[in-house]
Design a protein around this nucleic acid. Structure first.
Lengths: 229, 229
DNA sequence: ATTATTTATTGTATTTATTACACGAATCCA
DNA sequence: TGGATTCGTGTAATAAATACAATAAATAAT
């Protein structure tokens, strides 16, 4: 039980599953590893946690270094700790997932990545370490969360159409939804603000643009409201 | 990025929130610490993860050392990693929760605990480290899980009455439930097996005893069934 | 200019699920 | 034998989920 016994033999890292949504497709941001081990493969972005850095800050740092984004939705998923998951030592990793609006994002691959690229979730390459397991875990968590919390909006631009949000739900959940019923349910929550504006330059009837009302959501939550889609 | 840089300065541990249920009360198993730091206080059982031990195995070991129980429901909750959460070094901890049938349990406090005792959840002592935060987190997780997975049965003896399971739900969720509606919903899932037996030696009309049908649950799950109470 | 193409918007009837609610039955104990 | 206690049960009213199709508004093609 002497806590010092183990201090020189192990480490912990953070890995981030960064989701984006674009052109009707759910995407994940992968880096092309420029460092050992598994140099030259696509992988989840991650890094060792610094000694003077809170775990959550570490996840934020990784996201910021890679995308320049802060103030992004982020949540811890799970911690992966099989003995042999890392070839160079005993490293457990805490997985996080983030939801970013791709439109806001600027590529800024950091030292350990030669390149960073969005990959469609339906067609991701094989990943090193236990990253495939982590990614699947993240996809399932996202499915659960999106039904119980209004986090889908984090993936869309500030103004969006009802079809946008429905398509997003269909991509994430991998199901089809009835248009009229989906709208009825969503609008009944009164969490969308009608901007009064419409799409422009589309080759069909333009759709109304809405914004998500975060303030209202927070106040409803205080009153025991629970989001469900 | 050199993974060896950090290997001598940090460690990771597992802490377990072990829930039990007895006489209408939800309980948590705490140990009276016999080792530094925080010697002489009630705390969550936990230990450093051994280098040759998977994270989940570590949680199982802690539970087994303390209670002699294995094959118990157990799930990871969250990882806590504030820089200063441990006074002797940088230690992140992965929290697990377990559900045990108190009746099965035999006390077997291990080396680091002078004593282990069930504490009613409504009246727990102040806990060291960030254990109060962990316990609250675990209580909330339990509330969520119990509504979406049939894990309440893990806290009851193999045979139980409908009132037992209702009382358990009321304790965990901290709400009151309507007797007729609760039974209707529960029985409609056809997941309970009527044993044909009744309570004996109770000073009132004896209740039917049921068992939870784990096999049926698993097969229903395959078919897309989703548990909800 | 007319027509074709595409996507947006809207309501109702049916089915299913949730809620609210009260009294006789079975056992032990005094 | 009467009192105390918990068990077991059904129905009516309300709310939520589902299934379903025709018209509107824009651009593109002719």
């Amino acid at each position: 039980m002497d806590i010092h016994k183990q201090f020189f033999k192990s480490a912990f890292s953070v890995d981030s599953v960064i989701f984006g949504y674009d052109q009707g497709d759910l995407k994940v941001l992968l880096i092309y590893r420029g460092a050992k081990p598994y140099i030259g493969t696509w992988a989840l972005p991650g890094d060792l946690v610094k000694l003077d850095e809170d775990l959550d800050d570490s996840a934020r740092r990784i996201l910021f270094d890679l995308t320049g984004l802060s103030n992004v939705f982020m949540d811890q998923i799970h911690t992966f700790g099989k003995v042999d998951r890392h070839p160079l030592g005993r490293v457990i990793t805490v997985a996080y997932f983030s939801l970013v609006k791709i439109i806001d994002y600027k590529l800024n691959p950091s030292s350990w990545a030669k390149e960073a690229k969005w990959h469609s979730i339906v067609n991701t390459p094989n990943l090193p370490f236990d990253h495939t397991e982590i990614l699947n875990y993240a996809k399932n968590k996202l499915k659960e969360r999106v039904r119980h919390q209004p986090i889908g909006f984090e993936l869309l631009p500030k103004e969006f159409t009802l079809s946008d949000i429905q398509n997003l739900y269909e991509s994430v959940l991998e199901i089809n939804l009835d248009k009229r019923n989906f709208r009825k349910k969503l609008l009944a929550m009164s969490l969308l603000i009608d901007t009064g504006y419409f799409q422009i330059s589309v080759a069909h009837r333009p759709a109304r643009l809405y914004r998500f009302d975060k303030k209202k959501y927070k106040s409803l939550i205080q009153q025991g409201f629970s989001f469900e889609l």
